[in-house]
Computed example of a mutant assay.
Amino acid sequence: MATLTTGQTFPHFELPADDGTTVSDAQLRGKPYVIFFYPKDDTSGCTLEALDFTALANEFEASGVPVFGVSPDPIEKHCKFRDKHGLQVPLLADPERTLIEPAGVWAQKSMYGKTYMGVERTSVLVDGDGRIHRVWPKVKVDGHAREVLDEARKLAGA
């Protein structure tokens, strides 16, 4: 499994978004962007993280750095999650893990003594050349979106 490191090229992706469009690394080339990988729609930590990014969505937009959430949930579930919580960040569906696995965030996890495979909560700031500027592995949600915004602003010169 790959591990994301600063300076390396971010993996190629083309994923469906909750608004019916498709988002790819190719169309984002030339500007920085943020991808936050999260385990599952409508769980407490994932909801809090998505709400935090939503609360800062206008500030990310003003700095010219779009933000995208990625999980293995299907589009239908993303749409319900978005509508239920009024989310304003695009959610990309990766049920086949075509980005999740190359990004190295599909990992063995453990809960209540059971071991399973799932998404390791991770955020990545990618520069305009498609290279990884910063990685936040094993994210703790509280204050995280603000930290990512601060770093995104520095990168974008905003």
Rank of each mutant, 00 (worst) to 15 (best):
C46A: 10
Q27M: 14
L51K: 15
H12M: 12
P39H: 10
P11F: 11
S44I: 08
G20Q: 08
A26N: 10
T47P: 00
L15S: 03
L51V: 12
F13Q: 04
K31V: 09
V23E: 00
F36L: 01
G20F: 09
K40W: 02
T22Q: 13
F13N: 03
C46E: 06
K40R: 14
Y38L: 05
E49A: 15
T54W: 03
D18K: 01
T6N: 14
T54F: 05
C46G: 11
A50P: 01
C46L: 09
K40P: 00
F10T: 05
D41A: 13
Q8F: 04
P32V: 08
V34W: 00
G45F: 09
E14W: 07
L48N: 10
F37T: 09
Q27N: 12
E14T: 15
V23R: 11
T43A: 10
T54P: 03
P39T: 08
T54L: 05
E14P: 01
D52C: 08
D42Q: 02
Y33K: 03
K31M: 11
K31L: 05
D19Q: 04
F10N: 04
L15I: 11
T9V: 15
D25R: 14
D41C: 05
R29F: 12
F36D: 00
D18F: 02
T47F: 02
Y33N: 01
A50Y: 03
A50M: 06
Q8P: 00
G45I: 10
K40Y: 04
F37G: 05
L48W: 00
F10I: 09
S24T: 12
D18E: 02
L48Q: 13
G7W: 13
L15V: 07
F53M: 06
E14V: 07
S24W: 13
T9I: 15
R29I: 09
G30V: 09
D25M: 06
A50H: 00
D41Y: 02
T47W: 03
K31T: 12
D41T: 04
Y38G: 00
G45Q: 11
T9Q: 15
Q8E: 14
R29T: 14
Q8Y: 06
F37K: 08
T47M: 03
L15D: 02
T21H: 13
I35T: 06
T54D: 07
T6D: 13
Y38I: 06
P11D: 12
R29P: 04
H12P: 02
Q8A: 15
F13L: 08
C46P: 04
L15N: 01
S24P: 07
E49L: 13
R29L: 13
G45A: 11
P16E: 12
D19A: 03
F13W: 08
